[in-house]
Design a protein around this nucleic acid. Structure first.
Lengths: 245, 245
DNA sequence: GCTGTCATATCATCCTACAACTTGTCAATC
DNA sequence: GATTGACAAGTTGTAGGATGATATGACAGC
């Protein structure tokens, strides 16, 4: 089997790179909340780019609630509590500690989502979940198709909660984890490092089919903890203490 | 007491308004995932603004993983699963159904966070939580200071989980709820519509002080359900079924 | 059929100019 | 002395033009 070549990606745009520089200064505290940032003209000179590039970058920071621009005065750094968006920095996820914490959040969210889904799912939604499960079964190896089926399985369960915010949050967290693992492995395209454990998925599905709220939560918790371990991350086993209920 | 005048806010910038228009088309499906959007020049003409404004708007959409611009070809709409950020549309929160769903997510997150905090909090963190509680007690009325103390109370608990992602998510959700309530009420500045219930906060604090994981979860769940009811929103009481544990 | 060249379209970046807003200063008026 | 209005300077917000960089398709040559 021929080794697959890495994708060569387009260069990151200048505004994007300016955002990275400025966001780092804001997150690190160099540009403190309440303080005024250098003017657009100054930033353009200091970073050696045109003012348009700076403006595009600042527009992005504004959209995230990181800065507030006031015409005639300048741009001011806002406190982190006023963020308009949640983002996850992929660089920070390269540490095992942060990956474990994100998995912990995922476990928390998906366990509760499975409980809600067990209670609220429709027959149609259950069928959808089952289709994704069958797609996973059909795949002989951990290939992109299986990854997609796994993600779809989780998203379908989140959708069965009937709460679009839960769906959005779970979808986002799963995707950030997937992208981080993908980026970490892109130089070593050995596809069996991340295995799908069908039995765990079946246990989740069976609990949903039986509308067994507790079993669904427990099965999903086990599955997420197992998934974390399979990528080398340990999360707090205390969360599986509920099996005694 | 003189009636407080409403703040007159700065006009929304043109790029921001363009983002709103384009995001609406994307979310509604008019611009379908995979499809190519009108060119920058076309959008500039159609919306009657300069191309710079369009570029700033598209830069924001790109940052959110909503579109992908390919030089020489155009900008393409990406599927929602590939979003780089979570945002909550305040307009959609004006329906009671969506507010209830967001409160449900908040309840889910904060209940579990309280359980984790009960287990992991340090003495210093407990002291911090207590200080916010005392600030709430000191306020005679539901004023901005109390709102801030309440939010800080919740954020301090989320911080005591030792998981920055949990803290980020809870902080964000609380802030979106606060802003929505604030916007809904800005034309009726009657400040006692949202009351703080000290007893509920004390119950949460006591459970944290006692490192009682279950009591912390139950107390926090009650508090969030109570808070939702106080703004006219009912969430699923099934979540309080855990008191039997 | 494959490769190389060219034309066309469109995004990416840069530049210039002016409008709009904010702040501070100073003079005039009460 | 306090208040108001005019003006200058600084900075963001918007518009428009130009050129570079990238992608695609058509066509000719081998």
């Amino acid at each position: 089997m021929a080794e697959r070549l890495d994708q060569i990606e387009a260069n990151e745009t200048l505004p994007r790179r300016v955002v990275t520089v400025l966001a780092r200064k804001i997150e690190s505290g160099s540009f403190a909340p309440g303080s005024r940032m250098p003017t657009e003209q100054q930033l353009a000179q200091q970073l050696g780019v045109s003012r348009n590039v700076i403006r595009e970058a600042i527009a992005q920071l504004r959209a995230d609630g990181m800065v507030e621009a006031r015409q005639g005065i300048g741009a001011f750094v806002l406190p982190p509590e006023q963020r308009s968006a949640i983002r996850i920095d992929h660089e920070s996820l390269k540490t095992a500690g942060n990956m474990a914490r994100l998995f912990e959040l995922r476990c928390l969210l998906e366990t509760e989502a499975a409980r809600l889904a067990a209670k609220r799912r429709t027959q149609k939604q259950l069928g959808q979940i089952k289709r994704h499960l069958e797609r996973m079964r059909g795949a002989e190896r951990w290939e992109d198709g299986s990854i997609e089926a796994d993600l779809s399985f989780h998203r379908a369960i989140a959708e069965a909660t009937g709460n679009s915010y839960i769906h959005t949050f779970i979808s986002f967290v799963c995707e950030q984890i997937r992208q981080t693992i993908y980026l970490a492995r892109r130089n070593h395209p050995i596809h069996n490092l991340v295995e799908v454990n069908i039995a765990e998925h079946v246990a989740v599905y069976d609990a949903l089919a039986a509308s067994d709220v507790d079993a669904a939560g427990v099965a999903m918790g086990r599955h997420i903890i197992g998934a974390a371990e399979r990528v080398g991350v340990l999360i707090d086993p205390g969360l599986s203490r509920r099996k005694g209920r």
